[in-house]
C-alpha cells in the first residue's frame, strides 16, 4: 500500500466520527427547516446533558480497560438522595447526591481493583442492586425535588444557554483535563495499554483504577442530579438504559474498548451529540421515532466494527 493511502486510511479511522457528525448535521440542515434553529439547538443541548454527564465518567473507566454498567442506577440513587434532601438548601442536596455517587464509585472500584472481580459482571449485578435500593427509597413512585434545585434546573444563561448543559460540559472538560494533564490520567492510559507492564514499571494500578471508578460514580450521580433538577421531580425512569447508551456514545467517540485510548473531549462529546442529534433530527423531520433505535443500533455496530479494525491494524 502507498504511504498516502495508509495516511488517508489512518485519518479516516481516527477522525471518521467527526466527519460523520458534520455530515449528519449538514444533511439535517438541508432536509429539515426546523433543525438549524436556536430553539432546536437548546433542545439538543438539554437532551444531551444527562448522557453527557454520565458518559464523561464512563470514558475514564473505559480508558483503563474496565467498564461500569451501574452508572444508570447510580444516577437514580443520586436522584433519590435529591428527593430525601428536598427540604435542605439546593447546595446541600447536590453535595449529598454527589457524595452518594462517590461512595458507590469507590465501592465499584474496590471490588474491581482490589478484589479482582470481573467488572462487566460485577457492575451488571450492582446495576440491579442499586436500582433496587433507589426503588425502595422512592417506593417505585415519582417524587419531588427541592424547589431551589428545580429552579436551578430551569436556569438559562443569557436566556438561552441551559445551565444544566454547561454543568455537564464542565464536568466533561474537567475530566478531559485530568485525563490529559495529570499523573493520574497518564496512569489510566498506561493501565489501559498494558496492565501488567504498568504494574511492573511501578504504576499504582489499583489506586488509579479506584480513582477512575470514583470519578465515574460522581459523574453518574451528577447526571441523575441534573435530571432531577431539570424535571423538578424524580421519575423511576431516571438512568434507565443509560449505561448502554453511554457505552455506545463513548465508543462511537473513539474510546477503545481495548483500553488505553480515548478522550472525553472531543471524543465522548461527539459521540453523545451524534446519538442525540440523530434522534432529534429524525424528530424534526417527522420521521417515526421508532426508527431511532435502528439507526442507533446500526451506528454502534459500525463504531465497534471500526474499533475492531483499528485495533487489528495497530496490533499487526
Amino acid at each position: 500500500m502507498h504511504e498516502s493511502m495508509i495516511q488517508a486510511k489512518r485519518i479516516g479511522l481516527e477522525y471518521g466520527f467527526y466527519l460523520l457528525l458534520l455530515a449528519i448535521v449538514a444533511v439535517f440542515t438541508v432536509i429539515s427547516n426546523s433543525f438549524l434553529t436556536v430553539s432546536n439547538f437548546v433542545q439538543i443541548a438539554i437532551a444531551s446533558t444527562f448522557l453527557l454527564a454520565a458518559a464523561a465518567g464512563l470514558t475514564l473507566v473505559l480508558v483503563t480497560g474496565e467498564i461500569d454498567l451501574s452508572i444508570g442506577s447510580t444516577a437514580y440513587v443520586a436522584a433519590t438522595i435529591v428527593y430525601l434532601t428536598a427540604d435542605a438548601p439546593a447546595g446541600l442536596s447536590i453535595a449529598a447526591a454527589l457524595g452518594a455517587g462517590l461512595a458507590i464509585g469507590l465501592f465499584n472500584g474496590w471490588i474491581v481493583a482490589y478484589l479482582g472481580m470481573n467488572s462487566l459482571l460485577a457492575t451488571l449485578g450492582l446495576m440491579i442492586a442499586y436500582r433496587g435500593v433507589a426503588l425502595v427509597i422512592t417506593e417505585g413512585t415519582v417524587k419531588q425535588a427541592g424547589e431551589g434545585l428545580a429552579d436551578l434546573g430551569q436556569l438559562k444563561l443569557f436566556g438561552v444557554i441551559p445551565l444544566i448543559f454547561l454543568t455537564a460540559l464542565a464536568i466533561l472538560l474537567v475530566f478531559q483535563w485530568i485525563l490529559r494533564k495529570t499523573r493520574l490520567g497518564t496512569y489510566w492510559l498506561a493501565i489501559g495499554n498494558n496492565e501488567d507492564s504498568a504494574r511492573k514499571i511501578g504504576v499504582p494500578v489499583r489506586r488509579a483504577k479506584l480513582a477512575a471508578y470514583a470519578l465515574c460514580g460522581i459523574s453518574a450521580a451528577a447526571s441523575g442530579t441534573l435530571l432531577a433538577g431539570y424535571l423538578g421531580e424524580i421519575t423511576t425512569f431516571t438512568g434507565r438504559g443509560m449505561e448502554f447508551q453511554a457505552v455506545a456514545a463513548v465508543v462511537i467517540g473513539g474510546t477503545s474498548l481495548f483500553g488505553g485510548r480515548g478522550s472525553a473531549f472531543p471524543g465522548t462529546l461527539a459521540g453523545v451529540l451524534l446519538l442525540i442529534i440523530i434522534n432529534n433530527g429524525l424528530g424534526t423531520r417527522g420521521v417515526s421515532p421508532f426508527v431511532y433505535p435502528f439507526v442507533a443500533g446500526a451506528l454502534i455496530f459500525f463504531a465497534i466494527y471500526l474499533d475492531a479494525i483499528k485495533n487489528r491494524a495497530r496490533s499487526s
Partner: peptide
C-alpha cells in the same frame, strides 16, 4: 520491549517518575 503504545515517547520514558507541574497532581 516494554512500552505503552498510545502514550508519547516522553511519557513512556518517565512513566514511573513523571515531573510535577505547577498545579497539584499535574504533570
Amino acid at each position: 520491549l516494554l512500552y505503552f503504545p498510545t502514550l508519547t515517547v516522553a511519557e513512556n520514558m518517565f512513566i514511573s517518575r513523571l515531573p510535577a507541574g505547577r498545579l497539584p497532581f499535574t504533570v
